[in-house]
Nucleic acid binder design. Structure first.
Lengths: 254, 254
DNA sequence: TCGCATTTGTGCGTATGTATA
DNA sequence: ATATACATACGCACAAATGCG
């Protein structure tokens, strides 16, 4: 049970302890009231000086995980993760549903640019063709949870940025181009440390984790319509892969 | 495109650069021959001293990712992340397929224990009923990529640990109990920092990221058979959600 | 074989960050 | 707050191996 700390691995002891405390919280380290053991006890448990434990607690407090009160102790701020469904018919607002009072996706930028190799391959275009890029930020009850970048073929979806900005919904924007339904044809998932842009847009602490999904959406005939890269704040969401569900016309993909 | 390094957050620059190089390898950092840019170039790109880049390369060489040759350059030993499919018919070895010469899953422990609330709910049992827990380690070409914990109802699958240890396959072990096919009924995905057990079993550096999947598998009638928690080394794999595929009998889930 | 550019390997001095007492 | 030890990062210089004309 005693975590093994090591020096000289490029990760400071206080950060290893911070990770250890964060892991321990999910494992009954704090008592029923959310109170952590006193610093002296943690220092002994991890085999380090109390100063080092204090540095770890300060980092977690800065991340919003812990809250120290002089004379009372250190308490865990509990926050439940949102469950974000990944399926053939994934939609941002519909997916989060009743988990939050207010879910919204705001456009924070758009541009016309030339398709990179990945975008071109996903949309079935030649590299360098014009595409429209949309940047949006998903929030639940005002807290940023995801940052999404989408690409559309420019010749087919001229003006989609304005439509998305007005409606705040990819589904509604696509409906304006006669696309009544679309399906996710592929999704890849990876996780990495937050980059500077992630920490800024998603209001993350440095060193936080983001889950990155790369998806391609196609219309009912299977032709690619949109591709996207979405970065989720890993400490605020959990992805859930769902079985296929019937579409609005009652059909079901095989 | 330029990775943003941050000082003073408890993670050494050389370790951040090591992570950056590892991520960059999957993104065309190395040329066709697998050769990395020279140390001086990397140092300029990351905005650090060459010594610092050398520390990062040394760490990656120690992990088996890179190999330096004096006077020639630094070469990548393994080009990209493994792609691990998540679908209704996910299997460890079959999924990784031809991405590695040797994929295997070794049992590293087993125990009979009482079902926790989560396990009981997943398997459709009462909390506290006997279950069998299997711990296994998945490797590709000898490198650990995943650590999996599975639970089975003890009364129905008595002796499954021995069968799994001998065959190294959950599919084969279940076949021994008359279960010819099974489907993944649900999967949740989250990402967190590696705990001590993760760093030990998966040979990760402290502060590394693990992707955690929780899955329930059921037989063809939909009854739960097995549930599992799998931890993937986030810098070695990428998950991919796949569309439903027909089973060996030609059926397709709706 | 030689010379040369390129690239990795090594040594030293110094400043700052981390951890202990 | 101070002192001490070690890890990290930088800057400069030079040695050693490789490849090429």
């Amino acid at each position: 049970m005693t975590a093994q700390l090591q020096r000289g691995l490029g990760v400071a002891l206080w950060r290893q302890i911070a990770d250890g405390i964060r892991a321990g919280i999910a494992n009954g380290l704090a008592d029923e009231t959310g109170r952590l053991p006193p610093e002296a006890g943690l220092a002994e448990r991890f085999g380090v000086n109390r100063h080092t434990v204090r540095a770890a607690i300060a980092a977690l407090a800065h991340e919003g995980v812990l809250e120290s009160q002089q004379g009372r102790g250190t308490y865990v701020r509990r926050r439940q993760r949102l469950i974000y469904p990944i399926g053939e018919r994934t939609r941002f607002s519909a997916g989060l549903g009743d988990q939050a009072r207010d879910t919204r996706s705001d456009m924070i930028g758009s541009a016309k640019e030339q398709a990179t190799a990945w975008v071109a391959a996903a949309l079935g275009l030649e590299t360098g063709r014009d595409v429209i890029r949309l940047e949006s930020l998903g929030r639940a009850d005002g807290i940023p949870v995801s940052r999404s970048t989408s690409w559309f073929a420019a010749d087919r979806f001229e003006g989609i940025a304005e439509l998305f900005a007005r409606t705040g919904s990819v589904t509604a924007a696509l409906a304006g181009f006669g696309i009544s339904d679309y399906r996710r044809t592929s999704t890849s998932i990876e996780a990495r440390h937050a980059e500077e842009a992630d920490t800024r847009e998603l209001q993350l602490a440095p060193g936080a984790i983001v889950i990155v999904t790369r998806a391609v959406n196609g219309d009912l005939s299977g032709a690619p319509v949109q591709c996207s890269v979405t970065r989720f704040a890993a400490d605020r969401v959990e992805l859930r892969v769902e079985a296929a569900t019937p579409g609005p016309d009652g059909s079901s993909a095989g």
